[in-house]
């Protein structure tokens, strides 16, 4: 391979940026690309996460990372795109049950997608979990044999358990591998550091976010004040989940912090931005103030009579 290439040849070989559905309501319209149409710059939603990108989803426990990974797997399988799910945390048989439940919640018959999902059980196999080379050789074999289009790893953190110093090396190898095989990938990583939830370090830690194409950070927030209560519409002591796309080098993306909800059927939905919530709260307050003012006026007029 040539080390130096001209821009013209690079443009010829460049991949067109397009989206591939994530299966998560509210997420697909947060990525977009720009085009020049009739001399004007136009922003076009991708309607999915960028194809061939490696997306790192990070957050503390119970933030919905694995659910997003499962929703993506089911959606892609329902579109006929073969997807391999590397499970590092949960044994395969439990993952299968979870995927089935998730499929029903998404109104997809699990039997219609069972030939499109392949599971690599690294939780149950030390040689895959401890040696990234073995895992990648196995994935290469599976990708070629079953014509795989997407790879999900839940979680990459499990691949460098107790050897965090190797995190970058391991993730770099995985990233290069996924790029070589033109895979769209979701990597789940657990946030364990004391870094701020929404900082770059929060997005996986150990400089992992700098390697991948796109980072999604999810954080938990406890309702602690009356203001929070009103803003989030939940009582004090309850928890809300916040979602943010923490950089994506493949395309343009929404940069706001949003509410992430897990529905009672166990699906992740990306909701309104915090500024939308604040505007709504402000509007509500103004309306209340207007109402109070008019009530006072009525009362005053009444007294006058």
């Amino acid at each position: 391979m040539e080390d130096v290439i001209t821009l013209s040849s690079a443009l010829t070989d460049a991949i067109e940026v397009e989206g591939t559905p994530s299966g998560v309501q509210g997420l697909d319209n947060l990525f977009f690309k720009t085009k020049i149409q009739n001399g004007k710059i136009t922003v076009i939603p991708l309607n999915g996460i960028p194809k061939f990108s490696v997306v790192n989803i990070t957050g503390a426990n119970d933030t919905g990372k694995s659910i997003i990974a499962e929703q993506f797997t089911i959606k892609q399988a329902s579109l006929g795109n073969n997807t391999v799910f590397v499970t590092v945390e949960t044994p395969a048989k439990f993952l299968v049950s979870s995927l089935k439940e998730r499929a029903y919640a998404m109104s997809i018959n699990p039997h219609s997608i069972e030939n499109n999902i392949f599971i690599v059980d690294a939780e149950n196999n030390d040689s895959l979990r401890e040696n990234v080379a073995n895992l990648l050789d196995t994935l290469a074999n599976v990708i070629k044999k079953y014509k795989i289009r997407n790879v999900v790893i839940d979680s990459v953190t499990g691949l460098y358990e107790a050897k965090e110093i190797s995190a970058r090396t391991i993730v770099r190898k995985i990233y290069n591998f996924l790029k070589k095989f033109y895979q769209t990938a979701i990597l789940v990583s657990q946030k364990r550091s004391a870094h701020d939830e929404f900082s770059v370090e929060g997005a996986g830690g150990y400089a992992v976010p700098h390697i991948v194409d796109c980072n999604i950070a999810i954080a938990k927030k406890i309702i602690e004040s009356f203001y929070d209560e009103k803003l989030y519409g939940k009582p004090i002591g309850e928890m809300v989940r916040l979602f943010r796309i923490d950089g994506c080098r493949m395309c343009g993306h929404d940069t706001s912090t949003r509410i992430l909800e897990i529905t009672n059927t166990g699906l992740v939905v990306i909701g309104k931005t915090l500024s939308e919530l604040r505007s709504a709260l402000k509007r509500e307050k103004n309306e209340e103030a207007d109402k109070n003012e008019s009530n006072t006026r009525i009362r005053y007029t009444g007294k006058g009579r």
Partner: peptide, 13 residues
């Protein structure tokens, strides 16, 4: 859903 079996697992020598 197909769980990848031992025969598909590659181990580097």
């Amino acid at each position: 859903m197909k769980v990848i079996q031992e025969s598909d697992i590659q181990e580097r020598d």
